[in-house]
């Protein structure tokens, strides 16, 4: 099989960009998502922040897949890369299901209360 990236300008990505750069991007995104979940009150926006965190995790998986670090992974890097991508595929599928159900719940809450603020949703509090 032909190396697929050789015809593209970023053929040598793995030689020039360190793993840490990808991880930093992912970490900043995750932190912003976490702050957003705490700070925002609109449930839809809170939900979007959760999606942001999920994507940050996906990026970490893919970065570690492309740059295997453990000795086990280094002995069989192709296997490690495939495993990381599989996890990302499953995360995406689960996120899709989560969005479908979560938006349904938010719609139901809106229909019930006509206005939604995550701070006001305290009817289940003991």
């Amino acid at each position: 099989m032909i190396p697929i990236l050789t015809h593209l300008p970023f053929a040598a990505v793995f030689d020039e960009i360190p793993l840490g750069w990808f991880l930093t991007l992912s970490l900043v995104m995750f932190t912003l998502g976490a702050v957003g979940v705490v700070v925002r009150r609109n449930p839809v926006v809170v939900f979007m922040c959760i999606e942001l965190m999920l994507n940050a995790v996906n990026l970490t998986f893919l970065a570690f897949a492309a740059y295997p670090t453990q000795m086990v992974a280094l002995s069989n890097p192709g296997e490690a890369a495939i495993t990381g991508q599989m996890v990302v595929i499953f995360v995406m599928a689960i996120a899709a299901a989560e969005v479908a159900v979560g938006l349904g719940i938010i719609m139901a809450i809106f229909r019930l209360r006509n206005e939604a603020d995550v701070d006001d949703m305290n009817t289940m509090r003991g």
Binding site: P18, Y67, G78
Partner: peptide
Amino acid sequence: TMERTNVQF
């Protein structure tokens, strides 16, 4: 991991 590059496979 900042220095980690150049994994050839």
